[in-house]
């Protein structure tokens, strides 16, 4: 899992059927150092069931973890990254 910040939203009408109806967020991976939180430059498109808002700091899971967020145990959702938690706080030095 990674820490990231929601930087935007992606809209698509034409989707593969197994991705239909899912909200897609653009999440920038961030790294927390003692100087604060800064983007690493890596960006991922993740599905979102938690209604995360733009600017929110979130936890993004990949692979089977992401599929579990969409539908536990399922192997037939077309999802490889998903927002699994909206971060309220963190004890990491440098985090908000």
């Amino acid at each position: 899992m990674i820490r990231g910040r929601v930087m935007g939203e992606v809209w698509a009408t034409k989707k593969a059927p197994r991705l239909a109806g899912r909200k897609l967020l653009l999440v920038a991976e961030t790294c927390v150092t003692s100087d604060g939180e800064r983007p690493t430059g890596r960006v991922v498109v993740a599905t979102d069931l938690l209604d995360a808002g733009q600017g929110d700091t979130v936890v993004v899971a990949f692979g089977s973890g992401a599929r579990n967020a969409e539908s536990p145990g399922s192997r037939d959702v077309l999802v490889d990254a998903a927002v699994v938690q909206v971060i309220d706080g963190s004890s990491t030095p440098g985090a908000d």
């Binding site: 930087m7 809209w11 698509a12 983007p39």
Partner: peptide, 13 residues
């Protein structure tokens, strides 16, 4: 999916 639009909040982060 084929992207119709991408919206990025200018001040986000």
């Amino acid at each position: 999916a084929i992207v119709d639009g991408v919206e990025v909040l200018r001040d986000a982060g």
